[in-house]
Design a protein around this nucleic acid. Structure first.
Length: 211
DNA sequence: AACTCGGGGCA
DNA sequence: TGCCCAGAGTT
């Protein structure tokens, strides 16, 4: 990892010691469901729904007994609930029929599931299977672009592949730091550059300051 | 590349 | 009220 990246992550870590993924789950399957649900919404909302859902339907086999209408009703307070309910039940069927009821632990199988794209697959690989990767969502992408850390998620992935000096846990923490930073400080509109702890390293802020 | 899904939170 | 959101699928 290059020096600038490390310095930026150190600063963020010091500034936001409690930044972390807040999704509630106990198993890879529950993480899969929670992550599919989390698209275009917040962890807080997802947890409100999954708390009751995972208590009554903890496993993939429990989910397989749900009808589409039942699942829609249970996740209705989250947006996009029709698509998500449909995708989840399709995925549950595939997990049972093709993957012996287990969540697959490789990228290609994960993205073959309904409702699971590149970002969700990486979240599952990193958090459930201890596999080095990083999920690039809109926040990570935006923050990375602004500070000149990377111009694409592939570059961020490469950054991770190249460095072997920090643990997976540290890198996942770094990932959550970037997301937290993107949601709260480095927002898409009206970013709070004046209180940003890493503005001295930021290409976006420098251009703003120069103009 | 553009469009759609979407209820709820917040200004 | 209007705007926006820890994406993915379709056209």
């Amino acid at each position: 990892m290059n020096r600038k990246v490390k310095k930026i992550l150190d600063l963020l870590s010091k500034e936001y010691p409690n930044a972390a993924c807040e999704l509630n789950y106990n198993t890879p399957f529950q993480l899969l469901i929670a992550t599919v649900l989390s698209a275009q919404t917040t962890d807080k909302k997802v947890n409100e729904v999954t708390k009751d859902l995972f208590k009554k339907y903890p496993t993939v086999y429990d989910f397989s007994k749900l009808t589409i209408q039942e699942l829609e009703n249970k996740i209705r307070k989250i947006g996009l609930y029709r698509n998500k309910a449909k995708n989840i039940l399709k995925t549950v069927k595939i997990l049972i029929e093709k993957f012996n009821g287990e969540v697959p632990s490789n990228f290609d199988d994960l993205v073959s599931l309904h409702g699971v794209g590149r970002k969700t697959a990486n979240v599952i690989l990193a958090n459930a299977f201890n596999i080095p990767t990083i999920a690039v969502d809109t926040h990570v992408f935006r923050v990375s672009n602004r500070i000149g850390l990377a111009s694409s998620d592939d570059v961020l992935q490469t950054e991770y592949d190249l460095q072997k000096n920090i643990s997976k846990e540290e890198w996942i923490h770094a990932h959550h730091l970037l997301i937290w930073h993107g949601r709260n400080i480095c927002t898409a509109r009206k970013p709070k550059c004046e209180i940003c702890p890493i503005n001295m390293y930021c290409k976006y802020y420098k251009e703003l300051y120069d103009s």
